[in-house]
Every structure is written in structure tokens, then in C-alpha cells.
């Protein structure tokens, strides 16, 4: 464990807490893409299949449980909670995430480290996580109303991934055999997807103006 990875995990945890707080306290999910949240639930469901079979550490198991619980409860809130679901913008959140899931599944079947069910599912979860933010970014472009919490949520998600890249550089330099191209490339693609959001988010923060994404 290194500082980059720990702060990455904490930033990731913060992003889901911010989102849950937003939904739970103001009972609204305006501006949040259900498609992205469903993709994240799928990411954790397919990545943490070995949560009860391969014990890594107490920290690892607890964090996995938290991510599974938060991602599925966010999806539940947005789909079934009688008040929250009313603020879900289903006309605008129309990204057909099946067009993201299928190519990721095909790619995972072709490009993986070992052709076993668990390894293919794990690789699939990496590819899905790389593109999971797309429906949310599309929704932000469309609705233009990026409220603070949604902006912070996306920012924290991007920051967690950027910290993970530093973690991989650190581990590559300190653990000689730590080479994982699949993880690195999908993580890099994911972080690059946030690049333009970061640019506008930091600019709006510097100029102290409301965050506006270009048309």
C-alpha cells in the first residue's frame, strides 16, 4: 500500500459518500446519470466476485463491501425511492449503456491475462469502469446545470483515477515485476475522459464562476 493508492481509495470513497449524501439529504438525484450508476454497480459486481474466496486484507474486504453497498443503494434510490426517483431526468439520461457493455465484454473475452471466468469478469470490470462516466458527462453537457455536489462527485472520481496512475508508477518503480498493461491502459483511458471536465472545472473554480461545459 502506498500513499497514492490510499489517497486514491479515499478520494473514490469520498465521491460515493458525496453522491449518497446529496441523494439522501436533499432527496434529489437531479443531474445524476442513472446509467453511470448502473455501470458502476456492474463494475463492482464483476470485479469483486472473489470477495469471499480470496482474502487480501481487512481493509480490502471492507472497502469492497462499501463500494458494493453504496453503488447498489444509489441505483436503488434512483430507481425505487418514491421521492428521489421523481427528480431523475430520464428524458435526458438516454445514453444506451448496452453499447458500452457489449464491446467491453467482447474486448474482455479477447484481451485478457488469463482466459478464466474470474479473470475475464475482472478485465471486463476494468473496461466498463473506463467508460462508465460517459453517460454522466453526456448528461452534464445536455443539462448544463452542474450543481456543486455533482461537480464535486465527477471531480473526485477523476482525481481517484489520476491518483491510481501515480500509484501504478510508484509500484512499477518499487516492485520490479509489477507490469499490468491492461490495468494501466484502461485506467489511462478513463482518466483522459475526465481531462476536459477537469479543465472546465478548475477554470470555473479559479474564476469563481458557475461551471459551464461548452455545447
Amino acid at each position: 500500500m502506498n500513499i497514492f493508492r490510499l489517497s486514491g481509495d479515499m478520494t473514490h470513497l469520498m465521491s460515493v459518500i458525496v453522491l449518497l449524501l446529496k441523494i439522501h439529504t436533499i432527496k434529489s438525484c437531479a443531474g445524476i446519470s442513472l446509467k453511470t450508476q448502473e455501470l458502476y454497480a456492474l463494475v463492482f459486481a464483476t470485479r469483486y466476485l472473489d470477495i469471499f474466496t480470496d482474502f487480501v486484507s481487512v481493509y480490502n474486504t471492507i472497502m469492497k463491501l462499501i463500494f458494493l453497498a453504496t453503488s447498489f443503494s444509489i441505483v436503488w434510490y434512483m430507481r425505487h425511492h418514491k421521492i428521489v426517483r421523481r427528480s431523475y431526468d430520464k428524458e435526458q439520461d438516454t445514453f444506451r449503456h448496452l453499447f458500452l457493455i457489449l464491446p467491453c465484454l467482447i474486448l474482455a473475452l479477447v484481451v485478457n491475462e488469463k482466459f478464466t471466468f474470474k479473470e475475464v469478469m475482472w478485465t471486463f470490470s476494468l473496461y466498463v469502469e473506463a467508460v462508465a462516466i460517459l453517460p454522466q458527462l453526456v448528461l452534464l453537457q445536455r443539462t448544463k446545470n452542474i450543481d456543486n455536489l455533482t461537480g464535486q462527485y465527477v471531480f473526485l472520481l477523476g482525481a481517484y483515477r489520476a491518483l491510481y496512475i501515480l500509484n501504478w508508477i510508484y509500484r512499477y518503480l518499487t516492485e520490479k515485476h509489477f507490469v499490468h498493461w491492461i490495468t494501466w491502459i484502461s485506467g489511462l483511458v478513463q482518466t483522459l475522459l475526465y481531462a476536459d471536465f477537469f479543465y472546465y472545472y478548475i477554470n470555473s473554480w479559479k474564476n469563481n464562476v458557475r461551471l459551464q461545459l461548452p455545447a
Binding site: R5, D9, H12, D50, D54, V56, S57, N60, M63, K64, F67, E113, W122, Y164, N167, R171, E175, H177, F178, H180, T183
Partner: peptide, 10 residues
């Protein structure tokens, strides 16, 4: 190679 070390990450 020890147990797949990328799997110790979240």
C-alpha cells in the same frame, strides 16, 4: 510471479 498483485487493488 506471486499471487496476481494487481488483484490487491480495489
Amino acid at each position: 510471479r506471486p499471487k496476481d498483485d494487481a488483484k490487491d487493488e480495489l
